[in-house]
Design a protein around this nucleic acid. Sequence first.
DNA 1: CAGTTGACACAAG
DNA 2: GCTTGTGCCAACT
Length: 104
Amino acid sequence: MPQHPAGFVEAVLAVVDDIPPGCVATYGDVAAILGSRGARAVGQVMARYGSEVPWWRVVRAGGRPPAGHAAAARPRYEAEGTPIVATSDDDGYRIAIARCRWRP
DNA sequence: CAGTTGACACAAG
DNA sequence: GCTTGTGCCAACT
């Protein structure tokens, strides 16, 4: 495996690290900031290097938490004061992205 | 170089 | 509002 991660990775981490507490941004928004449309590419970076950034501030369109990591992100939102809404889905909640959408 | 994968977004039904 | 299908992008095999 490559020891030198691509610069794209550092760019994504920089944007995520720039998101202030209590706010969230969608994968598509992060990709747009980077000048790319690869929302999936952003998720790919999070899956590999997200452990070093507040990945919970990056959510899917509509304010849904990252698949398979909703339970891990929920306490983070409550701790940061991010407005969330309880639902009956398997995730159990949703983010009020309409109120805390971070825009650069 | 071609194929597969993934913490996605958007359009249509 | 939810599900399905298609499209995009970057990294890995």
